[in-house]
Amino acid sequence: MKVITANRLADGRVVYRCKNGGWTETLTKAEQFTDDAGADAALAEAAFDHLTVVGPYLIDVEEQKPSGQKIVRERIRETGPSAGSLHTGLVEV
């Protein structure tokens, strides 16, 4: 399965493309493509959203979670940094 992802232009946040052509911050709400042709067509359409998002591209998903070669990267994009100030006790937040 494939999903289209990008970063939102105004604030850079990770977004995924929905069936209605809108964008969501929640991967599970994104449109999933089973065939490459459908995914490529939607990606071509997403390119017109250049005033909303930056650099749309396709990622692999399985059971609504990132998978495939870029799994580490896409998991981090989905859930946030795996480590860092928010997780180490360095800073109380």
């Binding site: 232009l9 105004a10 604030d11 990770v14 250049h50 930056v54 650099g55 981090i76 946030g80």
Partner: peptide
Amino acid sequence: ARLSGELTEDQFKPLRLQNGVYLQLHAY
């Protein structure tokens, strides 16, 4: 100019980089 579409992302990117703005995984 980027938000209005006058500058494309390809044009804006080198300009924003020259002012220290990257687009990273989760945010700018």
